[in-house]
């Protein structure tokens, strides 16, 4: 109800307020700018670089070269340029992070909204199911799912997505429960709106902010989880230059060539840091009470 009244009096609406608050947050803006550059570079790399000749082609005479003007991050054990591989590999991490979160947001929110809105037996069934999935340590659960569906980009997305379904379901359910008993829902009901209409028009928009905050934060942890699984050998198959997989290769050359381990890790860290900064900004902007 609060959000509605803001819309009428403020003129800019809830989302205008959020954007205004977000712009005040310097860290979040810096994060957003760098993240924008990363996305641009990831897309550009896919068009400019040639996968066969520049990313995966073996060039053993140039193997394990140190940092130089020709190879600014050096080369790996097959003589492939580490910088170009990181650049080309950016889209895997971003894609996995975003798709995994889309999977968990969709499944989790639908379950949570159904549980919160209908209550009773629906709620018990759904939330008990979540109680069963959540105590399984998430890395182990992800390993199970990834190995069940074979080594591929899609099974990695699914594995990383499933592990955060319970927390989305809980957030969505909590959000719905606060709006469920509001008067405007009752008003809509008395006007003959169907359950589906009420959920789509009133319940979802009003329980969206906490879900969105959760989603932004989860992209960051999804990228880290995915790189862990790749590191354990359950991710995108070689020779595709996925960052976690590159780290796992670099591990065999720790003593001779640190570049292979150093740079992909820094790439993951910067990307995840930007998303965390944006996530903090979104959270503070959507719920100013949390900001201190």
């Amino acid at each position: 109800m609060k959000k509605r009244s803001k819309k009428q009096s403020g003129g800019k609406g809830f989302w205008g307020e959020v954007a205004k608050e977000f712009k005040k947050n310097k860290g979040a803006i810096i994060g957003l700018i760098i993240f924008g550059i990363i996305i641009f570079a990831a897309i550009a790399a896919m068009f400019i670089l040639d996968y066969k000749t520049q990313i995966t082609k073996l060039n053993l005479s140039e193997a394990l070269r140190p940092v130089s003007s020709k190879h600014i991050f050096g080369t790996d054990q097959f003589g492939r340029d580490i910088f170009l591989r990181i650049l080309y590999g950016a889209h895997y991490s971003l894609l996995i992070g975003v798709c995994a979160v889309v999977i968990s947001t969709l499944i989790g929110s639908i379950l949570g909204i159904l549980a919160g809105y209908f209550g009773g037996i629906t709620e018990t069934l759904i939330m008990r199911l979540m109680d069963i999935i959540s105590p399984i340590p998430s890395v182990l659960l992800a390993i199970c799912i990834a190995s069940a569906f074979g080594q591929s980009l899609y099974s990695l997305m699914l594995a990383v997505g499933v592990i955060s379904v319970p927390s989305f379901a809980r957030v969505a359910r909590a959000g719905v429960m606060t709006v469920r008993d509001q008067e405007y829902i009752e008003a809509a009901k008395s006007q003959g709106a169907s359950e589906f209409q009420i959920i789509v028009e009133h319940v979802i928009p009003n329980s969206l902010p906490p879900i969105l905050v959760q989603a932004t934060m989860r992209v960051a942890s999804a990228i880290i989880s995915a790189s862990s699984l790749s590191f354990l050998g359950l991710g995108v198959p070689a020779p595709q230059p996925e960052w976690g997989g590159m780290l796992s290769e670099g591990r065999n050359f720790l003593g001779t060539n640190t570049n292979m381990t150093l740079f992909p890790g820094i790439a993951i860290m910067i990307t995840v840091l930007c998303i965390n900064l944006i996530g903090d900004g979104v959270r503070d902007a959507m719920d100013p009470r949390l900001k201190r």
Binding site: S227, F231, L254, G255, T261, I268, L277, D280
Partner: peptide
């Protein structure tokens, strides 16, 4: 934030490079 943003296995590898190797 930095600690949250880095994969901890990578941090472990960095520690190995520095303190062991």
């Amino acid at each position: 934030l930095l600690g949250m943003s880095m994969p901890n296995f990578w941090f472990g590898l960095m520690l190995i490079i520095l303190f062991s190797l």
